[in-house]
Simulated scan of single mutants.
Amino acid sequence: MKILIIEDEDLAVKKLQKTLATVDTTANVVGIADSIKGSVEWLTANPSPDLILMDIELADGQSFEIFNLIDIKCPVIFTTSYDEYALKAFKVNSVDYLLKPIQNDELQAALEKFKKLSSTYKPTDNSLEKIVKELQQKLQPKEYRKRFLVKYSAKLVSIEVKDICYFYSDGRLNFFKTPDNKRYAVDYTMDELEEMLEPEHFFRISRAFYVSVGCITKIEDYFGNRLVLLLNPTVDKEAIVSREKVTDFKKWMGK
Results as ranks from 00 to 15, higher is better:
M1D: 10
M1R: 11
K2T: 14
D8S: 07
L11V: 04
A12P: 01
V13G: 09
V13N: 07
L16T: 10
A21Q: 13
V23A: 06
T25G: 01
T26H: 13
V30Q: 13
D34L: 00
W42E: 07
N46Q: 15
P47W: 09
D50V: 03
E57A: 10
E57W: 03
L58Y: 05
L58N: 08
A59M: 08
G61V: 02
S63F: 07
F64L: 08
I72V: 15
V76A: 05
T80F: 03
A89C: 02
F90R: 10
F90H: 10
K91E: 09
V95L: 02
D96C: 01
D96E: 13
D96H: 11
Y97H: 08
L99Q: 10
L99A: 09
N104T: 11
N104S: 14
A109P: 07
A110W: 09
K116E: 14
K116A: 06
S118N: 13
K122W: 01
D125I: 00
N126E: 15
E129F: 01
K130A: 11
I131V: 15
V132Q: 11
E134A: 11
L135H: 06
P141I: 03
K142P: 04
E143W: 00
Y152W: 09
S153V: 03
A154H: 14
V157Q: 13
V161I: 11
D163L: 04
I164C: 07
C165I: 01
C165S: 14
Y166A: 12
Y166V: 06
Y166K: 07
F167D: 13
D170Y: 11
R172Q: 12
P179M: 08
D180W: 00
V186M: 09
D187F: 07
T189P: 13
E194D: 15
F202N: 10
I205T: 12
I205W: 04
F209H: 13
F209G: 06
Y210C: 15
D221C: 00
F223D: 12
R226W: 01
V228A: 12
E238T: 01
I240Q: 11
V246Y: 12
T247S: 15
F249I: 09
K250S: 05
K250A: 04
K251S: 09
M253P: 08
G254I: 00
